[in-house]
Each structure stands twice: as structure tokens, then as C-alpha cells.
Design a protein around this nucleic acid. Structure first.
Lengths: 230, 230
DNA sequence: CCTCTTGATCTACCATACAAGTCCATACTA
DNA sequence: TAGTATGGACTTGTATGGTAGATCAAGAGG
């Protein structure tokens, strides 16, 4: 609280318990291990992950900021249910942010990262032909992250990650066939092509078209698993 | 962690200490009471606000997610310094999000909220002619919030609030004269006009033009207060 | 003068104990 | 039977003590 002290920086890489619990919980929620509506108890999670209640509590605070869980004071914590209204806003937000990213990418893009993207796309194409869902998903995340990093939009990418969590959760409910996987890769290629051509409008269109696809099956999921929705 | 239980809802409105500390700290940082680079200590803030360290800690976690503070494990917590690179991304993100909001507002907008906006603008116009900075700022926030709410984008507004905090902090460093206040109100009117006319392109342009204005004086501040930047 | 060690003193982190609110089954009452 | 207390078993919220890690200053040794 005193005078602005430089506070010298040295790097520490100790993985805190809070961070660990947050990551595990986040993954568990996105992967539907804890489906929407699941009641989470600080104490229960603490014993399960073998930490005290405090790190769990702090992890839940972070997740509640993203909107993955809802903390109801003195009453409990639940995994947030899916709402079409919320998902609509999530889609709008992600479209807006990622569209801005690719448009900026058309202005300037780190050539080194540009090179690494080819490798990502190749990995993804191979995984698509093999129907390797895990690799596809990982590469997809890497692709979008590389776009943001290359366009010098790392902070915006952090925001995208938050809304992306909601979309990933829905995507885990929709089975992906190989055709849709191949389409995914083609859409990625279209985005990169537009950036290479320095064509903002084309990049914008390609990205929005790509993101629109993801929530295509939301109505069907709603019909099948109404208990996941609110 | 069990079966998805409905978890009946009843309303509680207890203002938690954590929330209180978070709000006060947030305000203190934005208003430059705690300028960039200020060292914050959990214990010190706890005694100052007369709560224990735990609520303070949780509040700091929330603020660190927004990016207003940086928690360095085992070393300390500081109020984040301003970086032009970060502010560039903040501007891009806010433009993208609020542009999306007004474009959606052109499709559908709650008529009741539309009515309330006139009152906000009138309040703001009066405050502008009187040079009432506090009222201007409050009304500005209300205006943008009303746009988001009317367009049914409340979740997106939450995201905007986070990036807006950074812009508000910078704005606190730039003195506002009455002319720029009047311009502000006119820009708000232009946005509303475009929405009334259901003209997405016009609304988009008006919003981006409005937001661009805010960071106009950033270079000057950088020159004057280099110690606030990194 | 420079380098390294050492220990005092900070910090955030984590665990534990306690407080307070909510819900629900049960028993009591009219 | 219907309605209402009541007590206990949850929940999250808050307070506090202890721990490990980081920094820094003083001093020893070269």
C-alpha cells in the first residue's frame, strides 16, 4: 500500500493447489464429467482432490466468474445449466472477439507463428482423416490460440478462452463425424488464406462462418437432454 | 457432486465481506487512489478495511482475473501498470463487444429500456453543461449498460465491464473539459439514433467512433506519468 | 572491491476452526 | 388432517495460525 516500489521480478513456477484444482474442475465440467446441474460441495471436492477447502473455494470463485458454476451463499454450488439465451450471447461475444483478432491479423502477423500454423493444420488434417477426436480438439485450440498470439492479441485470447469453455461444453454433447471434422480443417484453411491475402472482410466472413457451425446442433441437444438446460 | 438436484432457490441478499472489499478495491484502483505500481498487502488491506485476510485474498483473486492487480506468489501483489500494448487490446475488445451489442440492438430492442435511455441522456446533457464530472461518468456507465440490457446482452455487458475498468482508469488521468463532455453526449445520441433507425452499419460506426475518442489522450499521459506505465 | 553465505523479515499460500445461514425431517399442536 | 415449531445436518462465509518461498541486508571470506 506504500509508495510504488518496483518489486523486482524473478520467476517461480510452483503450481499452486488453487490453480491445480481450478484446472481439474474446469476440465471436468467441460468434459461433462460434472454435467450441468451437478451439486458441488467445497468440502467434498476438497477431500476428493486431497486439499483443504480453501484452494477449492478459490478455484470455485474463478470458475464462477467465467460462469461455469454458480455459488449460492450458504446454500451450495452447482454446475451452471446451459441456457439458449446465454449461449446466444456467448456466440456473439466469441464471434466479435475472434473476428477482431483475424482482422488485426490481416494488418500484421508474426511470421514465425505463421509458420507454426501450417504444422498445426497438418496435424489436424491427419487427425481428421483418422477420426481422432482428442487430437482434433487440441489442435483446434492451438490454432485459435496461434491466431491470437500472432496478431499480438494475447489478452483478448484470454477472454475468448472464457467464452470458449461454454461452447466446448456444448460441443462435447454433439457427436462429431469425420465429415464435419474435415469441414473444420477446411474452414481453418480458409481463415489462414484470407489472412495471407491480407483481406480483412474475407477473414471476418471465414471466421464467423466457422464459429457459426459449432452451435448448429444446439437445438437437437436441447431436445434430447432437457435436464441440462434451464 | 451427486445427482443433479434442483437445489431450490430462495433469495438472500447478504452483502459478503469479500464482495465489499472487491468493490472498494476496484473503485480505489480505477480512481487512482491506488495508482499503478502500488504494492498491496493482504494483511495491510485487511486491517485497513477491518476484515480478515481471507476475504481480501479472495477479492484480490477476482481483481487479478480482470487484470487490475497482479498477484506474485510468495512475493506480493501490485496494482497493474498500464501498458500501451494492453490498452490497444482493451480498446479492440471493447469495440468488438459493444459494436456487436448495438448491431444486435438494431434487430431487437426492449421498448421500455429504450424509454429510459432518453432520461439518461437528458441527465447527462444537463451534467455536461454544468461540468459535473461525477454525474457524467455515472450516466455514461448507465447508458452503455442500458444498451446492453435492452439488446438482451447482459452477459456480454459483464465482459465489457471488465475491460471498461482499464479504460476508466486511463480516463481518470485525462482532464475532461466541457466541450469534450458535450461531444460525448452527442455521440451517445448518434448511437441511439442509429438504433432507432435500425441501421446496423451506422450504429457500428457511431459506437466505434465514440470508443475511439476515449483513448485519444493516452500518448500525452504516457509522456507525463511514465512511472504509471511499464 | 567483489562474491558468497546467512539469517531476519517480508510475502502469499494453505489448513483448520468457528460462525452464520439454509433446508428438511420430525414432532408437536390445533 | 393440516399447519407450525424445532432441532439437526448440511451449506458457504470468515477468522486465524502456521508454512514455504522470496527478498534483502549484513557480514565473512577471497
Amino acid at each position: 500500500m506504500n509508495a510504488p516500489t518496483p518489486l523486482p521480478l524473478g520467476h517461480s513456477k510452483a503450481p499452486s493447489a488453487t490453480r491445480g484444482v481450478a484446472d481439474r474442475l474446469r476440465q471436468a465440467i467441460i468434459s461433462m464429467e460434472f454435467p450441468p446441474g451437478t451439486r458441488l460441495s467445497e468440502g467434498e471436492i476438497a477431500t476428493r482432490y486431497d486439499v483443504s477447502r480453501q484452494p477449492v473455494r478459490e478455484a470455485l470463485i474463478s470458475l464462477s466468474r467465467i460462469g461455469l458454476v454458480q455459488v449460492l451463499p450458504q446454500r451450495g454450488t452447482i454446475v451452471t445449466r446451459i441456457s439458449t439465451r446465454h449461449m446466444m450471447q456467448v456466440r456473439i461475444a466469441r464471434e466479435a472477439l475472434e473476428s477482431a483478432i483475424v482482422q488485426r491479423a490481416c494488418e500484421r502477423f508474426d511470421p514465425v507463428i505463421r509458420g507454426s500454423i501450417d504444422a498445426i493444420l497438418e496435424t489436424q488434417a491427419r487427425a481428421a482423416s483418422e477420426g481422432d477426436y482428442m487430437t482434433i480438439t487440441a489442435a483446434d485450440s492451438q490454432f485459435h490460440a496461434a491466431l491470437a498470439t500472432g496478431a499480438d492479441c494475447e489478452m483478448i485470447w484470454q477472454m475468448v478462452l472464457d467464452v470458449k469453455a461454454h461452447m466446448d461444453r456444448v460441443r462435447h454433447l454433439t457427436l462429431q463425424d469425420r465429415d464435419s471434422m474435415r469441414i473444420l480443417v477446411e474452414q481453418h484453411r480458409a481463415i489462414v488464406d484470407a489472412i495471407d491475402q491480407r483481406d480483412p472482410e474475407k477473414a471476418d466472413y471465414a471466421m464467423r462462418h466457422h464459429l457459426m457451425e459449432i452451435l448448429r446442433d444446439l437445438p437437437r441437444v436441447l431436445a434430447e437432454r432437457a435436464d441440462y438446460f434451464e
